[in-house]
Design a protein around this nucleic acid. Structure first.
Length: 427
RNA sequence: GUGAGUGUAGCUCAGCUUGGUAGAGCGCUGGAUUGUGGCUCCAGUGGCCGAGGGUUCGAAUCCCUCCACUCACCCCA
């Protein structure tokens, strides 16, 4: 909607209204709870970073860096970028503050807005929200296992059913040259038949050819060699061990040797959770291992690897709403305080203050309206009770408590009222 | 960057084919006699019909241009 001044939110950026933020808060609450169980602590990094950070971490050849970043010159000429993802920032902070010197693994989670200048569509916005976590300082398969187990718990807690875990290993720096060579060789005779995009991509980033969705190309892609046949001993054993752990814990997944990730820093383990309720943007969350990223950002060679994930809150919330069968409403006040005339406004305000100190969510009705109007308002707000305060009540030092659902009412002193409002309530 | 669809009241939409002064439901405001609600009934509020141009006596309606939004491609969370 356009305002009189013609000012609207800019393309791809939206206002999250109370009925939306209620879902985001629910998701974030569940995530914080579960992250704590796995001993993750929160990190908050700046929304602005030096442009170079993402070029180095995410990769010059990626779509994100190549054409989707909000990058601009600061007043002093420094090139700044609105973060398109947070792993690079988390690892930058990990190095900058030498967190690897703290005991044990470093487990960090984050939450906040990310920015990518893409064409908006269902489940995709230019400002979107991610929750993610990173485990830094180790590369053992059981670390990968724990991260996936944690994600399973989060999906369960959020009531999301039918999410499919897709798993692959994309190999390490050791494997890539051999696999790329094999890919190029296999592709060479077929390349002229493939779409133009992928003819170019076969040179710049052969792995991404596997991502091609053009139907005509599918038979060609199906016949290409599998990355899994080109893993070195270490990568192969790492992946095999992870799969044993997952199988042992009853965590099911679909192995997809064609699944690759769009960020260059990924190595070995790569995964996605897909969900059907999201339209074409069906990736609910994604992540993987990125051994070597810390070194490429300046960490010493002895600093261990890392693994992490990011989930798209906007998409996750859609899946939660699909599972709950509706979009829902924010909770609303527990009680509406109704001063019957303006004379009772001060005592009504005082009553509301005392109730709030007691932990009750309270709304005030404007004074001097017909009582019927105020009760109607209470009903529409979803309040459990209306608290009527007129001249009689003030004189008697009591409040008329009325339960909206049943219509029953009673004049109570404030102790009894507090008990009535406090009994058996959860937020 | 490419393609398709849609723009009419705060919201969801009808009206457009076959041009004749702008509609419905919901919401909001008030009323149905005094300090008692959700239902019902009555009334009211609210729109340069996305913008600009053209055709016409007359355009929400037909034509052109632009813009915005949505979905999809691409890519990703």
């Amino acid at each position: 909607m356009k305002t009189d001044a013609g000012i609207t939110a800019i393309k791809g950026m939206r206002d999250l209204l109370p009925e939306d933020t209620a879902w985001f808060e629910r998701l974030e609450g569940h995530a914080r709870e579960i992250f704590a169980l796995y001993n993750f602590d929160e990190i908050r990094t700046p929304v602005l970073e030096p442009a170079e950070l993402f070029a180095r971490a995410v990769g010059e050849e990626t779509d994100i860096v190549g054409k989707e970043m909000y990058t601009f010159a600061d007043r002093d000429g420094a090139m700044l970028t609105l973060r398109p993802e947070a792993t690079a920032s988390a690892v930058r902070a990990y190095i900058e503050h030498r967190l690897w010197e703290r005991p044990g693994l470093t487990r960090l989670f984050y939450q906040g807005p990310m920015f990518r200048r893409e064409r908006p569509q269902k489940g995709r916005y230019r400002q979107f929200y991610q929750i993610g976590a990173e485990v830094l300082g180790g590369d053992a398969p059981w670390i990968d296992f724990e991260l996936l187990a944690m994600l399973r718990m989060l999906l369960e807690r959020c009531g999301i059913e039918g999410a499919e875990l897709v798993l692959n290993s994309v190999g390490c720096a050791n494997d890539r040259p051999r696999y790329h060579a094999a890919l190029r060789e296999a592709l060479a005779p077929r390349l002229p038949q493939m779409c133009a995009d992928y003819q170019r991509r076969a040179q710049t980033n052969p792995l991404r050819v596997l991502d091609c969705k053009v139907p005509a190309d599918q038979p060609i892609i199906a016949a290409l060699p599998s990355i899994l046949d080109y893993l070195d001993d270490r990568c192969r054993e790492h992946f095999a061990e992870l799969r044993r752990l997952l199988d042992g814990a009853g965590i099911s997944y679909r192995l997809d040797p064609r699944m690759v990730r769009g960020l260059d820093y990924y190595t070995s383990t790569a995964f996605e959770f897909l969900h059907g309720a999201l339209g074409a943007q069906n990736a609910l969350l994604g992540g993987g291992r990125y051994d070597g990223l810390a070194q490429s950002l300046g960490a010493p060679a002895n600093v261990g690897g890392g693994i992490g994930f990011a989930l798209g809150e906007d998409r996750f919330v859609m899946a939660m709403q699909a599972a709950a069968g509706g979009t829902g409403q924010p909770p609303g006040p527990r009680a509406l305080v109704v001063p019957i005339t303006a004379a009772q406004l001060p005592p009504a305000l005082a009553l509301a203050e005392r109730l709030r100190r007691g932990g009750v969510r309270v709304e005030m009705a404007p004074p001097d309206r017909k009582i019927g109007r105020s009760l109607e308002l209470a009903a529409k707000l979803g309040a459990e009770a209306a608290l009527l305060l007129g001249a009689d009540e003030v004189r008697e030092q009591r409040v008329t408590w009325k339960r909206l659902a049943s219509g029953e009412q009673e004049k109570l002193d404030e102790t009894a009222l507090a008990a009535r409002l406090g009994a058996g309530r959860s937020a």
